[in-house]
Structure formats: C-alpha cells, structure tokens
C-alpha cells in the first residue's frame, strides 16, 4: 500500500482523488458565491462565509482542502517534470495526433490557475483571516466580515473582471479533460458509463464556468 504512491500510477491516483475533491469543493464555493447575486442583501453570503471560516468541522476540512490543493499542484508539477525528462530531445515537428485537445495544455492552464489562486487568496481569504482589513457589518447584533462588499468592489474593476473570467475559462480547460480523466485514472471505465461520465464532465464544466463568470458580470452591470 505505501509503495502504491511511489509508483507513477499511484501518483496519478493522488491527482485523480484530489482532483475529484476539488471538483466537489468548486460546487460548494459556487453555491456560496451565487448567494451574493441571488439575494438583495449581502447577509446570506457574509453569513455563509462566516460559517465557513468559523465552524470546527469546516476548519478541519479547510486543512484538507489546502492539502488537496497542495498535493494536486505538487504532484501535477512533479509528474510533468518527470514527463519532460522522459522525452529528452523533443521533436522538430510538433505532434498533431488526434487527441483530447484540452489534455495538451493541463500544465499551462494549471500555472495560470495557480497564479489566480494566489491573487484570489490574497484578495479575500488572507485579508479576512490575517490582515483584518475587512470592513465589519452587524447582523442580529453580531459582527461579521463584510466580504460581500469586498467582492462587489473588486468586480467593479473592468480589468479584474476580465482577468477573473479568463481564469475560469482556463479552469474549464482543466475540467473538460480532468473530470473524465480522473475516472479513467481510477480505472473506472465502462462501455456504457464512460460516455455518460464524459457528458457529465461537460455539463459540470458548463455549470461551473457559467456560474462563476456570471457573478462578476452581474455585479459589474447590475449592482
């Protein structure tokens, strides 16, 4: 068992499991974010954000989440470097075999998303957690971080909106290949279900991409 993760397949397994975990996380994240535009008040959003940052269980999950991100990025990079080494001298003529288009750019989109993630965390997460530069609001007499206003302010900057949307399009690249690929790596392949998984992957990607890009657009134009 311990040597499982020493092998290339084991490391891919980590990529697969952490990837699936992040896929689930994205759903939760999207749900909370959407509350910002579905309600007239920022209260549900701020309360949800508060819950996410204060609940003990969530705090544990947070560590796991960060671990997931870290493992996914670390092994992604590790395997990629090993794969580059495996090729040695490359081809003069670039390969144009018929392949899954998005699979070719996983490392490139991953790097963009990592940059986004750092900016994103500095903008919101770290601000709330460490810097305390977040304005406070009171609901039912209790103080809450008004993260909502922070988000709305950011989404009023056109450059940021474009950057934000672009990053989610790159994330779509990742998901379009990653969703199905995670199942393939787990060895879950079936004549009937694999095509279903592939379609689910597309639907999921569409939902995530539309959901996350709709928020800044809505904020920019309507709030």
């Amino acid at each position: 068992m311990n040597s499982l993760f020493a092998s290339s397949i084991g490391k891919k397994l980590i990529m697969s499991l952490t990837g699936l975990f992040l896929i689930v996380f994205l759903m939760v994240h999207l749900g909370i974010n959407l509350s910002l535009i579905f309600y007239d008040s920022r209260e549900p959003f701020n309360k949800a954000a508060h819950f996410m940052s204060s609940n003990v269980l969530i705090k544990i999950l947070e560590i796991i989440l960060f671990g997931g991100f870290f493992l996914h990025m670390f092994y992604g990079l590790y395997l990629q470097i090993k794969n580059w080494i495996a090729r040695g001298r490359g081809y003069y003529k670039a390969n144009y075999s018929q392949t899954s288009f998005f699979s070719k750019y996983m490392i490139h989109t991953a790097i963009i998303i990592t940059v986004f993630l750092i900016i994103h965390l500095t903008d919101f997460y770290f601000k709330a957690k460490f810097f305390g530069e977040v304005p406070e609001v009171y609901y039912d007499g209790k103080p809450y971080h008004d993260l909502g206003i922070l988000v709305i302010e950011k989404f009023k900057i056109p450059g940021f909106v474009i950057f934000y949307i672009a990053c989610f399009l790159f994330l779509a690249f990742q998901l379009l290949h990653g969703f199905w690929s995670a199942f393939q790596t787990l060895g879950l392949d079936h004549q009937v279900y694999t095509p279903v998984i592939k379609i689910l992957g597309i639907i999921y990607t569409a939902l995530i991409t539309i959901g996350f890009t709709a928020i800044p657009l809505y904020v920019y134009y309507f709030m």
Partner: peptide
C-alpha cells in the same frame, strides 16, 4: 524512465492496431 499517463489518447490515436485506452483504465484498476 517512461513518463506517466495523462489520458490524452494520443497513443490510441496512433496505435496501428487500434488498441483502446480502455485497457489503460483496466491497467489502473
């Protein structure tokens, strides 16, 4: 020193004997 599989499907596309990557899933399993 072979690399790891990222399920791109290039192998399947170029295999002269048309061997499917579903066998790779079987290998993983």
């Amino acid at each position: 020193g072979f690399g790891s599989c990222t399920n791109t499907g290039a192998c399947e596309a170029e295999c002269p004997k048309n061997i499917s990557i579903s066998h790779i899933a079987k290998l993983n399993r």
